[in-house]
Design a protein around this nucleic acid. Structure first.
Lengths: 127, 127, 127, 127
DNA sequence: GTGGTCTAGACCACG
DNA sequence: GTGGTCTAGACCACC
């Protein structure tokens, strides 16, 4: 369920946190569903439990999961939060698009790219 | 001409390199134009000369400038390179758009966003 | 009668103990009144009996209840104890007020807050 | 400047973070003042650098300091943030006062306590 | 020299 | 068995 990309420059704990965030927001993981325990996931990914712990701490701090000591971590699903997250993503996208334009990429190229990616995504989702 | 944002999480050398890259690709800096000397820019930004040095090294490695020992650093303008850079940017954009879609942002929202940003950019460019 | 807040960071046994403590000191639970049995309460709250056990142990240790083997747990009501408890609370309040002052909250703000809360509490108590 | 209380139940990193927060909000530490380096403070308090690191990470996340890699951590001073922090403290105070009232502490006792603490604080501040 | 990440392994509190 | 904290020590990126 979780894949670590060691070529990715971002820290491992961030990759893990982002991955779960995706699973939660997209609805693949349901409300109150239990996340894998810190230790088990650590073994599975063969990384240190501390690293998982940190990813989970991040997710809890950001409101995506809640922790019950002695029981585990569970999905939270806070719609309001999801909207905030969406806005953050769009903001970042804006920054990125502007950067593209400033470096001379044409409007048409951007529109094309967007169309293609959306098409890909849909066919992928069907499979 | 160069502004450092200390709140930005990216390393300083990267900020500087990116800024010059923008100036070069957008054509503000012309072919064979001289970049500020390492020492002068270091004083101007009151940062360590090593940091400037590294930014310039990065730019040279990526083919945006060329270095003449004892004379300075100069803009290169290699069209083929610009295309590579464009592709890199579009690749990154693709990744980001996919991320948006996976987190439940609708196609229409993305298209809207793109339109708005492009409009903004054009009016901004006129001013 | 007892509500567990899983968002609360404090351990469950502490929440339960505090809740009973409130009921006892406020007089809602009378002297020699029987507390729910460990097992029944555990089932009712669907938590581990050990947790209830620990809450009761805490209450007994602090002198709020007494245990009769094979019979159950009963409210104690020891006025002297209540005074100790009061002092503990006031001590904690003192620490907190000092913290407020150190962080630049004005005397007037604190007094205002106190007045408002006391007013609220009285009208609430009447209802 | 920093004291760790090993009797305090709260984690060390939290104590350290709170202490700096106090110093910053109260104005003892000025804008852009440098905090002790992670390693130096670790040696001084004879605790592990990771623990300091975590305290600093917390402070940065909460907006009290900013980090410049390779240089150190510096005081931020964001007035808006301070107001939020003040409200948080008052909220907590409210909760606490209510708890006192519910456990039968009289209004007069609370008012007295407040007066005394404020007096203490003032004379202490003069010294 | 600075901060940031990660591992290995320990201990504690909780259920 | 669960998560939370801490230590010791290593390595990296940055300045």
């Amino acid at each position: 369920m979780i894949i670590i990309d060691y070529n990715d420059k971002r820290p491992i704990y961030e990759q893990i946190a982002e991955r779960f965030q995706n699973l939660i927001i997209s609805g693949v993981m349901e409300k109150d569903e239990k996340l894998p325990s810190v230790r088990m996931l650590a073994v599975e990914l063969s990384i240190n439990p501390n690293t998982i712990q940190r990813a989970y701490a991040e997710l809890e701090r950001d409101g995506f999961i809640y922790t019950v000591k002695g029981r585990g971590n569970f999905v939270k699903r806070d719609e309001e939060l999801f909207n905030k997250q969406k806005e953050r993503l769009l903001k970042e996208l804006e920054r990125h698009i502007k950067n593209c334009l400033r470096q001379g990429i044409k409007k048409e190229e951007l529109l094309d790219k967007l169309q293609v990616v959306m098409m890909d995504f849909e066919t992928e989702a069907m499979a």
